[in-house]
Design a protein around this nucleic acid. Structure first.
Lengths: 342, 342
DNA sequence: TTGAAAGCGCTAACAC
DNA sequence: GTGTTAGCGCTTTCAA
């Protein structure tokens, strides 16, 4: 419980060397004799020395961490993206500074401003919609910027994402070709969830392109639309538009809520109504029946982002921006089996 | 895209004042004239100035962030704890530096070491089991330490948690008094998940105290035991010990997996077998039937921790350690309804 | 209310 | 291989 913190100077004095030698002993690639290094590291450990990376970063004018903002901590898909990113980055000795925006671009602005004060090596944000000030801060930060989980029309820097709108097409195609005609959409109306809104927009486009009625839109409520809200929306759908024969939900969580509401009411899925989701969350593969969904490959988004950063950070200047497009995959579940198959 | 970063000096020159005045203008409580402050802040914004908190922290020898480690990002309960903590802390202008250990105390050691290099104002860890070096690092850090989600016998600093072992008692009591005799336990065997292990231990104690057989223990597999593993464990249970009439799962996620396995096999819950979980995850309230569970109040753990820190950080020295015990609540669901009720 | 000087702990740059 | 000097951008301290 010593109160004065042990500094490099203390270690240097104890080892009878200069602080510079101690500094070098802590860097792998330097030119300290092996014996001296071992002695210094041992001594440092005994003294309880902890390097002050605040000072190191200030002096060297660089840091070994990447700032990342996600909409919500409590979302397995974003968590997977961050985990995968982290696994790649930590191999190069980099860390992630994680923050969440609560699906609020004002909150994002505050977070980005705070993060930039810490001088990260790069910054990764989720989505392509930001406040003007956030855009300005990011553009002027002088570090690599990556926007993920989206394909912004007017990107700030690098992009690793997919089209949320186009991701709905395989679902609509599948439902239509398996004989569904009156297809509804749950969610995508929540303020802040731009990706959900994009998916609803894509649903409308795909329906309209097929000459199907795209007006069966059920609001999902507060962002992030959860299981309970999915169940409530399903209840609304069943009472307002009882002839609906299929429903696409903005995520698997709401789809599971919808599914459980059907179970509760004794409505057969997929016989009476087909249900599809988005995200390929674990529950889609475990629910009974399993839920047809779209896998946007969250881990791939994370690892591609990390690889991109490792490439870029080697360079002295930000030469040009890159754009990685991820292709979401259709995942067939029991919840949309065609009636003929039953 | 200017490459040289704008510093306080640049702002000072532009405003025709000293850097000290600029510095003061950025602190709320200082003594700069209102007009000058407004002018300086405006100028700073125009120049794209971003304060370097690396330098500020180094000079002032303090920081405005709290380091937090959790076992996994992908866990709604830990996410809730962090969210609640964050909401309280940000009112005092503090931020959270979040890292996850992947349920591995070696990984935790690395993370704690890295976090301490950044000189956080305090550090919060999940659980009470750490490597010797982690304990030493935490004890010597000279900052408040909080262990959460557990009640360690030999705490390092403050504690905000509950007894995972004792949390099983209400479940066993409930199942026993509603006529269940042959009760199994799924999970709690995964290396790294000490809280799961504690719950299994508590299950055995509660069963033994009632003179019930506590040997129906089904391994859940890799940590964190998920829905799929819960389903697989249920399959094992049903084939190995078919006369089992109730099962407690280490978490609601595995409980839901178990429930869905029963649905798949046409086994009636709770008629043929009762299922209970732990954690009061959203799915427990949405599944059909709803799942009986224990609510450990993850948000309360987070907000209590944050309040404790705000109290402590005001003081100059760490005076004495505090211990907040959270009381988990029993939540009755349909998955354990007594047979007479059916 | 404002400014000048000093220095937080470390590393870049250069010397030997 | 090792040491010396200077200084990263800010805030503490003291003076005016």
């Amino acid at each position: 419980m010593t109160q004065r913190t042990v500094t490099m100077k203390d270690v240097a004095r104890a080892a009878g060397v200069s602080v510079m030698t101690v500094s070098r002993a802590f860097k792998a690639d330097s030119s300290v004799s092996a014996a001296k290094r071992a002695q210094i590291l041992k001594l440092a450990e005994d003294l309880g020395y902890v390097m002050d990376s605040t000072a190191a970063n200030l002096r060297s004018q660089r840091s070994d961490f990447v700032a990342v903002t996600i909409p919500s901590l409590n979302n397995a898909n974003f968590a997977d993206t961050v985990s995968a990113m982290s696994e790649v980055l930590e191999k190069s000795g980099m860390q992630i500074l994680l923050g969440y925006t609560n699906y609020d671009i004002q909150q994002e602005e505050r977070l980005v401003a705070q993060f930039l004060q810490r001088k990260p090596a790069a910054i990764v944000v989720t989505g392509g919609l930001h406040t003007d000030r956030t855009r300005k801060l990011l553009a002027n930060a002088g570090i690599p910027v990556v926007q993920t989980w989206d394909l912004p029309a007017d990107p700030i820097g690098h992009v690793v994402g997919f089209s949320n709108a186009l991701s709905m097409e395989p679902l609509v195609a599948h439902l239509h070709t398996t004989g569904r005609q009156r297809i509804a959409f749950i969610g995508g109306d929540a303020t802040g969830d731009t990706r959900g809104a994009e998916r609803r927009k894509g649903f409308i486009q795909s329906m309209t392109a097929r000459g199907l009625d795209a007006n069966r839109l059920i609001p999902g409520g507060q962002v992030p639309i959860s299981m309970k809200e999915g169940a409530a929306a399903m209840a609304t759908l069943l009472s307002d538009l009882p002839d609906t024969d299929a429903v696409i939900c903005v995520s698997d969580l709401s789809a599971f809520g919808a599914l459980s509401e059907c179970a509760r009411r004794g409505i057969a899925v997929p016989d009476d109504i087909a249900i599809a989701g988005f995200g390929a969350y674990e529950i889609a593969g475990v629910a009974h029946p399993t839920i047809t969904t779209i896998n946007p490959h969250p881990r791939r988004i994370g690892s591609r982002t990390a690889e991109l950063l490792l490439m870029t950070l080697g360079k002295k200047a930000i030469v040009d921006t890159m754009r990685f497009e991820i292709t979401p995959d259709f995942v067939l579940g029991g919840s949309t089996a065609s009636r003929d198959d039953i």
